[in-house]
Write a protein that binds this DNA or RNA. Structure first.
Lengths: 222, 222
DNA sequence: ATTTTCAATATTGGATCCAAAATATGGAGA
DNA sequence: TCTCCATATTTTGGATCCAATATTGAAAAT
């Protein structure tokens, strides 16, 4: 084994911190709107503030945290308008990705999608929210990566990151998990038949459900 | 006057460095592919490496520079495929921005667009490449900002930044400058009549010309 | 002559320390 | 009691120093 318990540790401290921060935000340990106290966080992660600050700069670029000079960083909060905007942009970009990907899909690609879907179903059945989020993401990104447009895929990833803090709420509900599984099956079916139109349509529905659910969940805070 | 010659200096060193790096890249002083020697650059800009590295992290997030752990930063190079990809994504996002913006356009907005266009024409006539790039950008961003989708506008800005290093080549040619002026007039005309379809169409043409021109200019390097 | 090894050097990554700014605290005056 | 101002404390921004990694060059072995 590679010495430390929680998976292999990245080769630089900033990458380690970056991964930790992402987890903290997506799992909700760092709540949206919460100020980020550099000194405390650095000590907690056993690094100095330098790599922490570089990691925060990366997250700022991705929109996960906000920054103001001499005031510091806060976990980004998404208003309902922000959320709708993110999903609208995703709709545009993901449609493009799917339309480019479908004609290029190999059988091996489809196999990988099926495998990812199996993981999703397992996690959904087990009620494992974190595993569900991971597997769900793998499913979609596997598809998007097939478009052969790396920059497009990266943009989509960033947009997903932006709403990660809210996604876990969504998977907390068993009904939502069940629905996600069904919707994925519909998408997978369309992909097997190489129907871009249908795949796009099923994914649009998928997103719209997520937005609707989050809209009912959120209004408490913004 | 506010002490130093070249405009007001930002309140933090990283912001100053960030602005300087952008200029260096867009003007071509730092060529695509060139490695970034932190020590030398820091000394040249009279700052330590810490703010320089934070600025580089920001640029990495925007795709203007690439980074590899323990190897450092390089000015990003765009292959023709990359370039086409960026312009395709811009097409998608800018169409959305324009369609949202047009119904919301006030007369004051149109006035601001006209003003920006005047700047473009002045710069084009004077053959001032840098001013041309600045004014051109202002023209388009003024329009996109009217969509009332700040995240969308930010994404588009980032995509523009990505190709900034190559844009100056484009404006170097007088014929291109003349054509840009004409195309802007067509867009402006469509906007005055609040025709989203036509505005989108003219902008598509505008972009396609840029891509075609860059395609003939680039193949030397990638 | 070519390849391999190992040391010397250059460059990046990170920790500590100090400076600057913002925020919190407390007291004086109205 | 409330407001305002001066001061203390906290927090961020930046510089310097040291450590870790990568790169280069030269010498030795094949």
């Amino acid at each position: 084994m590679s010495s430390d318990g929680a998976g292999r540790r990245p080769p630089t401290a900033q990458q380690f911190v970056l991964a930790e921060l992402r987890r903290a935000i997506t799992t909700g340990r760092l709540r949206p709107g919460a100020p980020i106290r550099q000194d405390a966080l650095a000590e907690e992660l056993q690094v100095s503030r330098v790599p922490l600050r570089e990691a925060l700069k990366t997250l700022e670029g991705e929109g996960l945290v906000t920054y103001k000079a001499h005031k510091g960083y806060c976990v980004a909060t998404l208003s309902l308008d922000d959320l709708r905007e993110v999903y609208r942009i995703r709709e545009l970009l993901e449609e493009e990705a799917v339309r480019r990907a479908v004609p290029r899909l190999t059988d091996a690609d489809v196999d990988r999608l099926e495998a990812a879907q199996s993981d999703v179903e397992r996690a959904a059945a087990a009620g494992d929210v974190l595993a569900m989020a991971t597997a769900n993401r793998l499913f979609h990104m596997t598809l998007f990566d097939c478009a052969g447009m790396p920059r497009l895929a990266r943009l989509i990833r960033t947009l997903w990151d932006t709403t990660d803090a809210y996604r876990s709420m969504y998977y907390g509900d068993g009904g939502n998990r069940e629905r996600v599984v069904k919707e994925h099956r519909a998408t997978l079916d369309a992909l097997r038949r190489r129907s871009a139109d249908e795949a796009v349509a099923t994914l649009d529905v998928h997103r719209d459900h997520a937005v609707a659910e989050l809209e009912s969940l959120l209004p408490a805070s913004p």
